[in-house]
Design a protein around this nucleic acid. Sequence first.
DNA 1: AAGTGGTCTAGACCACCGC
DNA 2: CGGTGGTCTAGACCACTTA
Lengths: 232, 232
Amino acid sequence: MSDPVYIQIVEDIKKKVNSAELKPGDTVPPETALCKEYGVSRMTVRKGLAILAREGYIFSVPGKGSYVRKPEVNKYTLYYDEMNNAINSVDKARLLEVSIIMPDEKLADELKITRNKHVIMIRRLFYTEGSPVAYDVKYLLYNKGMPIVEEEIEKATFQEMVSSNIPIFALKKRLIISAQIPNEEIKRYLNIYDELALLVVEQKLYNNENKPIGIGITSYRGDYIKLQGSSD
Amino acid sequence: MSDPVYIQIVEDIKKKVNSAELKPGDTVPPETALCKEYGVSRMTVRKGLAILAREGYIFSVPGKGSYVRKPEVNKYTLYYDEMNNAINSVDKARLLEVSIIMPDEKLADELKITRNKHVIMIRRLFYTEGSPVAYDVKYLLYNKGMPIVEEEIEKATFQEMVSSNIPIFALKKRLIISAQIPNEEIKRYLNIYDELALLVVEQKLYNNENKPIGIGITSYRGDYIKLQGSSD
DNA sequence: AAGTGGTCTAGACCACCGC
DNA sequence: CGGTGGTCTAGACCACTTA
């Protein structure tokens, strides 16, 4: 009962779209027509249309009208936390190495820096219930004053490592997900004796100006992790 | 030049959040204060705040105020199209089998149907430049009147298979991404002789009432596909 | 009671589009 | 030119929170 009028408008139009009464490309009734239909002022109608627009149902063209949008069928929302996934979570992390290195050509290129800049390398193992489940390497641009406290690094997620330097809102991230066969080193670290695939997640962090500030590569045992995404 | 006022408000507040002048949990100035500050009416201020809210920067509590939100650090947007990914695209598909089956217990359970319902099974191979790159199996609830035209099925994506029955807007989808070692059958289909990991994407389609209408499992050669996601 | 955000009105002017 | 959406005003009433 007593939904605001603009919600009524939103749901009425959604219903028409979902039932194919309004098809992609069709025009939505003009705002003035909806004003009359619902007996409300134009701002109220516009509030409803704004919601439909941001949810991807319609788009508006100034001077022409509003149209039903073709939905983005390939878009999904994925939640990825290197320490937690839908079926498991990391309960222990072991620091293998923290060191300051000079990047090789590939790394310098990826981080968009020259090869004489310092980079922090952090290698860790993630454990669940006593068993190693992932091998993790991170490369961070070295900033003066950056604290390298081993105890803090051990359990930190990538965000946490950089968020002392960069406000989290200013952070942009990209993921690259792939399946790979472990090399001998990773097999040893993850106690892999038989054939087992790795789910490899490469995380790349950018600052506000789209300059890379870090790269992380986490190689999960394939029997440990599943990533989940959903539309809407 | 000449951005509307509400955009000015949005960008000013974004700047304050990104520079940590406003931190998560802090209160945003009340609407009336912003009205005075910018010399505009309340609806204009509210339009700006609405944009900040939908972009995840702030949230509002009736009777109290608006607050800076803690950003969702683990949320990514992923584009997945079974026929196209960031580095490759399928240029040919070969139909291995279309048949109507009775589901086994596991499948019946996943589709939330009884075991006496009919299910369409479609098995395909995807090719890129003449080489097989993925093995694809789909299970669809059988609806009377559902056309099973082999030529159409061959190149159809999952959406296309069901969209003749269900308006696309009404479709919800979930993905499960994992890394696996291929079994002997898939090795044969994908010409895998050495060790090679598979990136397996399970797609589950639901109708408006959240009832499953189909499951698809696409097993990609690990050297063929990389999935990409990004924050924002 | 005073302050907050949520809803809504009845206008206005503008830029853009198609005829 | 009339119709469209985009911006904006100066009010109003409400429910809610805090004190």
